[in-house]
Amino acid sequence: MKSSRARSIAANSAIYVILSVMGILWLIPIAWLVLISFRAEPGAWTPYILPQSYTLDNYTRLFTDTQLFNYPRWFMNTLIVAIFTCLISTVMVLMTSYTLSRLRFKSRKGLLNLGLILGMFPGFMSMIAIYYILKAMGLSQSLLALIMVYSGASGLGYFIAKGFFDTIPKALDEAAIVDGANQNTIFWQIILPLSKPIVIYTVLTSFMAPWVDFIFVSVIMKDNYNNYTIALGLYQMLTRENIYRYFTQFCAGAVLIAIPITILFVIMQKYYVSGVTGGAVKG
């Protein structure tokens, strides 16, 4: 008995050691990011690891030195795009997933299959075509174009929310119909109040998308610096011409947006797990 207890203590301490080492390895890049954001010496590559002197300049320069990289403006751009994208996509996703989950009509199966097939094409295969469509509409390089790109086809992301609506008992609808409600009021007054988790999940994911995407922005905005979003702007700071001067500023800018995103993610992680595992695991 004693030996087995000793063994389990040994095993547990081994696990603590492994976990600590892994934890440190996993946090090193993030710690380094924060450290570099306070580094006074410029340059991406230094012959030493820890900064030799510290400063807050990198943060203040983000907001004062806006000649080439207009961080505050990009921040506002991203915020505007994120708010509108979030509003539009949430409505679209909820309507689509609710309809496909709970309403019964003739072409429903066909639409479900179509959604499945469309999701299998690589998303940015069509970005050039989208660019030209926006150009034909006279919208290229504008924030409105970006909002439309992010939220336009958002209805296709119905899977997770549909999985949620599928689990709400149908009897609720039937009871409401007996009480004289029409389908519209059932959605707004009965199902929606029950769906807080999925609404929060949809809102947060669609709000976060514009902060982390740089592919579509770069195709749509091309060289219109004023309408860049944070992600693309920060990406530009690391090009060969800029990296020496702006590397530390990149780190500062990255820290500033990583904080809110991290907080949001930690809040929504439980919805995230149930969302991802919902369709992917057979019970």
């Binding site: 309507m95 689509t96 309809t99 069509s126 075509a129 989208i130 336009g152 958002s154 389908q183 519209n184």
Partner: peptide, 29 residues
């Protein structure tokens, strides 16, 4: 449109978006 045909109302806007920003570009490509 708000009762028996609610699916038409709810799907019209999302489908328009999907046609414009997914199907049309995809067929083009």
């Amino acid at each position: 449109l708000f009762d028996k045909n609610l699916h038409v109302t709810f799907l019209s806007l999302p489908s328009l978006g999907i046609v414009m920003f997914t199907i049309l570009p995809l067929i083009f490509m």
